[in-house]
């Protein structure tokens, strides 16, 4: 059980766990946590690919690691935008729900948007 296969299994488990959390948990903030879990699981998959690609004197393949670094920063930006939307929605309506009881509820009657 080399560390990379172990990390691969952990990555797969994290993706599964994150999927469950993202689908089931109704509160958007918890969904962001789940999204970050899946993200770290995916980055672990990149990590083991990098580790198994060790060659030419490097203990790792640098390209997937660079992708992971870019991915982490993008994931953070996504969480920041989502949090901003959640907080603004919270200020506006006092409660934060992705699906209100009837998601097909029509936006307010007064014509939509400019």
């Amino acid at each position: 059980m080399t560390p990379s296969t172990l990390a691969g299994l952990v990555g797969a488990a994290l993706v599964g766990l994150g999927l469950y959390g993202l689908i089931v948990n109704p509160q958007p903030l918890r969904k962001i946590l789940a999204f970050n879990l899946i993200g770290s699981g995916v980055f672990l998959v990149f990590g083991i690919v990098a580790r198994k690609g060790a060659a030419a004197g490097f203990p790792f393949d640098p390209v997937p690691q660079a992708m992971v670094i870019t991915g982490i920063v993008v994931a953070f930006a996504a969480s920041a935008l989502a949090v901003a939307l959640i907080l603004r929605l919270h200020e506006e309506t006092g409660q934060v729900l992705l699906d209100d009881e009837n998601p097909a509820s029509l936006p307010s009657e007064q014509g939509a948007g400019k």
Binding site: S4, F43, I48, R51, P59, F60, I69, I72, F76
Partner: peptide, 17 residues
């Protein structure tokens, strides 16, 4: 990440992640 020989990523994960 340290166990996967990826110190750069470990730093980024700890700092930003």
């Amino acid at each position: 990440w340290i166990r996967l020989f990826a110190p750069d990523v470990a730093l980024t994960e700890a700092a930003i992640g």
